[in-house]
Amino acid sequence: MDSLVLVVTSGKGGVGKTTTVANIGTGLAKRGKKVVMVDADIGLRNLDVVMGLENRIVFDLVDVVEQQCRLKQALIKDKRLEGLYLLPAAQTREKDAIQPGQMKALCDELRKEFDYVILDCPAGIEQGFKNAVAGADEAVIVTTPEVSAVRDADRIVGLLQASGITNPKLLINRIRPDMIKKGDMMDVEDVNDILALELLGIIPDDETIIISTNRGEPAVLDQDSHAGEAYRNIVARLEGENVPFMTLDFDTGFFGKLKKMFGI
């Protein structure tokens, strides 16, 4: 099988890029794929803590690029899943410590060993973005249903196009069905109308994500997590399956629980 280098990006910070990389990567590995997640956010290393692998780091991305170590020495094996690896970002270096050409070479090296190379792109549109995008075949744009995040996502579509990535897929994160019902949040259709991209998935705003990040255990492994289920659907879609989009109406309030009790 041909391997895929996928960059997860957003423009705006704090919309859930790192969480998305951790969950997609873990979900693909759970399905038996060989996956490496690369933290391209140099200076603001985060993917390691989301994955619960922060205590295992010896070498990092910049060490590999500068040939201070071999690639295999810097790859951290996941503690839960066979075939899942992390290449951490350097924490004490500047974003310009690597160049787009070096990143592309690294991605091509990883391509030989893995089915999926998933890049966690830093926020912004500067050097770090250019590096992360340089080696990618495809892109996932993460946004939330907010004016600022959608605007930045639109800007990213243009920048990706300029880098030769023409069909980015959209992931809408932190959807709150209660607010959509009240007319106080844009729904999936509103956002998708504006951005006009292929929809990869929708993720409900779910406190299990915070709990899973606290623990360093990706929610995709939690069978009871709504967000985890949404990520499992996304992983299946990446693998070419045709999975319907979730109905985001869980009815978790008092009456919802009551209805559940009586089976209606």
Binding site: V147, V150, R151, D154, R155, G183, D184, D190
Partner: peptide, 24 residues
């Protein structure tokens, strides 16, 4: 005026017209 989301959609449409015209 309905919920605030209508304002969000309207403001986004307007701002993106300018963004796209300037950026391209």
């Amino acid at each position: 005026d309905g919920g605030s989301k209508d304002r969000a959609v309207e403001r986004l449409r307007l701002v993106l017209i300018h963004d796209r015209a300037k950026v391209a």
